[in-house]
Write a protein that binds this DNA or RNA. Sequence first.
RNA 1: GCUGGCGUAGCUCAAUCGGUAGAGCACCUGUUUUGUAAACAGGCGGUUAGGGGUUCAAGUCCCCUCGCUAGCUCCA
Length: 653
Amino acid sequence: MWYLKARMESRIPARELVKQKGQLKDDVVAIKVDGRIVDLHTPVPADATFEVIHATDKDGIQVIRHSTAHVMADAVQRLFPGTKVTIGPAIEDGFYYDFDKPGGGFSDEDLATIEKAMLDVIAKNTPFRREVVSRNEALALFEKMNETFKVEIIRSIPENEEISLYKHGTPGDDEWVDVCEGPHVPSTGFLRAVKLTSVAGAYWRGDERNPMLQRIYGTAFPSKEALEEHLKLIEEAKQRDHRKLGKELDLFFFDQVAPAMPFFLPRGAYVYNRLVDYVRNLYVDYGYEEVITPQAFDPKLFRTSGHLGNYNENMYRLWTEDLLEEGAVDPKVGVAKHVQEASFALKPMNCPSHCVIFGARKRSYRELPWRVADFGRLHRYERGGVVHGLSRVRSFCQDDAHIFCTQDQVAEEIEKFLKMFYGIYKAFALTKIDIRLATRPEKRIGSDDLWDMSERALQEGLERAGLPFEISKGEGAFYGPKLEFHVQDALKRSWQLGTMQYDPNLPERFDLAYTGEDGKDHRPVMLHRAVFGTFERFLSVYLEHCGGNFPAWLAPTQAIVLTVSDKSEAYGRSVLEELRSKGLRAEGDFSGDKLGAKIRNARTYRYPYMLIVGPKDAEAGSVSVRSRDAGELGAMPRAEFVAKLLAESASPR
RNA sequence: GCUGGCGUAGCUCAAUCGGUAGAGCACCUGUUUUGUAAACAGGCGGUUAGGGGUUCAAGUCCCCUCGCUAGCUCCA
């Protein structure tokens, strides 16, 4: 590490350096030197320039959380002897620590007990102490403690790196030690607000072939107030959970008869269809053509495409009575094998169909780029533990399209796609988008040369557009690298929505060709792309983004007429009829409820407008408008409201 | 798929140590005629996810299956 390069005599503990400069205040937890966060225990060059990090700084909070993880591990090992420690980093909203606990997991009661023990450790306010040891010393220490996971970690630390131990507690009494890079707060008393939140399984080193450890999640803040604030935000986020909103707003539901396959109710179907319309309209502008393709296919198709073999475990297969009989005829084959080989498959993707269409006749270079769109319903068998509301389902529809083009056209097509993509996301006020370039996975088809070229093409596209991105190594599809566009849900889980994938392999496998200017056959390139990704997932993210408050153009019901009493029903119905005759989506509440109750009901359904009508309005030919977003707007002539709502009903372009 | 947790009326949730399944909302029927966030009364509604076991007795304890859920792994 860099500080090893400094001469020994010129190093002093960071605490001393900060003190010399007169900056050692009570809330200083670390310093930043050369962009690196170093705690006060760590030696730094005596002449280093630094920036102090306070407990309340973003970096400071991370130091607090990592230290809290240590205190938790200390408490856990004291309460549950025999439990081994592994790793415990600070994360986005808190920290976790993974344990190997004999005899199974932790209960909620255990969490409360652990939290209490942590408070005792914190109350003692013992300093964290940093100690540098040799590799052999570290190994000997943790081998003696039978901390097999730590031993494995120490062995994996590169030879040239320093190994440090962090201790807290009273030596010879309740001292606790961990091999750790740091950084840590000066003493346990710096941990003022901690809370353990949940427990879950996690594989050692994130690999499902490894044993499962017990992970405890928690969070910590520099003050009780900040912790309370955080917990409040989580509560509010839960209110916006799309699964809750879906129920409340009668948009969709699930039933055990079709696990993880949504039933869209009339109101949900309305929104869904408007999203589809919206994309269809844009396709006119961007030069796409739509096709309709089959749902189930002879498995031959998916052998050609490579799905059988690379995507097997995600596919639904279909059998028929005839198929069983055929299988029974030849005892050498057997029913199971015959069904496995010959049963039709529900499509999990549209690309093979589009290859079939492209290859169905001679194609000219003049046709390229050919952008072919498909709103086909797709089915993918997702493993039990991964499905999640509308975000991860087994039956869905993508705003899917494939672009067949020449190598030379790729750059422009990527550019056009990005333009379309950002235009759409802007229309939905989604601005926090993370882009990742997912590169070749282990399980893949095609030569490395093709992969090199494909990955380069996508990367250049992003660079030309000046978009920041991260690389997700090995995360590409089996047929090509991907650009992934990720957006977070209300609970800060990140979901991939849009995608663009460069695919040189499927045209090869389907032996696709177009006739070039030179009269010879050439292989086209294929781009897979989707802006929303799937309508299901997009809807889940968007629902949470707008909190169920759909804009007027998208709202299943734009306005509801509320009568003050029966006396105004006739007038109310005439208002309703007028709205509907103008193509507006309106409802009426002519029930015996009092006005207050009607308003309350209408609010929970989040209708953009309530039109309150009573004798005064009937007299004046007006409606009293209450806007969901802007509050009471007062009485206005019927025609004025109609014009206003019509203006708001246009979908963005 | 793995590790926890959960599954009671359409929805949100009660039910003490294993001892008669209950409330609010919604729905239906009346009464009330109401001007900006819940009028009142009555009624309907349940093989306690499904199956098996222990027990005199199971919503409650045990086992299996299904589903949901928090994470992990995997993915749009």
